[in-house]
Design a protein around this nucleic acid. Structure first.
Length: 255
DNA sequence: TATCGATCATTCGT
DNA sequence: CACGAATGATCGAT
């Protein structure tokens, strides 16, 4: 790992870029430094939790205290416009289905993204989304040009196992997942440990994503591990999840 | 990355 | 506590 430049907003903020497998000592130093990152100037440090497995590298922290998370949740409930009609359907094994949740996509002006084979323009950032995006940037040192929003109205809404589309994403950029509202289970499964007779036995990694939390999925996590938000019948209230990404620039303004 | 039916697991009720 | 039933979670086929 390479220590990066300081940020003007926060002298304690460090950037890090994975350039090789870190040594044990480097991992230790990195964790210590990340614990001093702040959500805003002169704020308290965030305690980070490291989640690691073979080819999996995540960082988990509470980004927003409950009161602020409550406010952000209700603001997003007012502001966010979700896809409807054809845009909220998906084709799997030849059949069309309504996706079992609501989705929206926001990003830099003119940014295009592809979902289930169709390319569309992202909506432009709202002030609330910019605030959350900038909070994630301050906490992580990573910048993002796009956010995919998924709204799960209750425990019946879910998302099946998948990896995020790699060729449209910058593979060196972590994916930052912010959760607001009802806590939901989140399950990682290694690609070699799925299916009828999988080549290896690797235990799934299961997390609960809390109200106001941030989960950073660092490379190469998305290469080796599928993730899902399974059905949980006992969950009765809604959750909004925002996954901030960096989409490759070549798709911009492509008429 | 969707649904469905089969199967496995957990909780419930007596 | 034991045991079967009911409910819920997971898996494989499509």
């Amino acid at each position: 790992f390479k220590k990066g430049r300081r940020s003007g907003a926060n002298a304690l903020m460090l950037r890090y870029t994975p350039i090789a497998e870190p040594t044990v000592m480097e991992k230790f130093l990195l964790q210590g430094q990340k614990k001093h990152l702040c959500t805003k100037e002169f704020s308290h440090p965030i305690p980070w939790q490291k989640i690691e497995a073979e080819g999996l590298d995540c960082d988990y922290a509470m980004l927003f205290p409950k009161g602020e998370a409550d406010d952000l949740f209700s603001q997003l409930e007012e502001e966010v416009v979700y896809s409807t009609g054809e845009e909220s359907k998906v084709q799997v094994f030849g059949k069309m289905y309504n996706i079992p949740r609501k989705q929206a996509a926001y990003g830099d002006k003119g940014l295009e993204y592809t979902y289930s084979g169709v390319t569309r323009l992202a909506c432009s950032w709202t002030p609330t989304l910019e605030y959350i995006r900038d909070s994630v940037t301050t906490a992580t040192g990573q910048t993002f040009n796009f956010v995919l929003i998924n709204r799960y109205k209750d425990g019946q809404d879910h998302m099946g196992e998948h990896r995020d589309d790699e060729h449209e994403l910058d593979p060196s950029c972590p994916i930052a997942s912010v959760s607001l509202g009802a806590a939901r289970d989140f399950v990682f499964r290694h690609r070699d440990a799925r299916g009828k007779h999988s080549s290896r036995h690797i235990e799934p990694v299961k997390l609960e994503l809390a109200h106001g939390s941030l989960l950073l999925m660092n490379p190469p996590t998305n290469t080796f591990w599928y993730h899902s938000v399974p059905v949980r019948r006992k969950v009765l209230s809604s959750r909004i999840n925002l996954t901030f990404r960096r989409i490759t620039e070549k798709t911009r303004w492509s008429q």
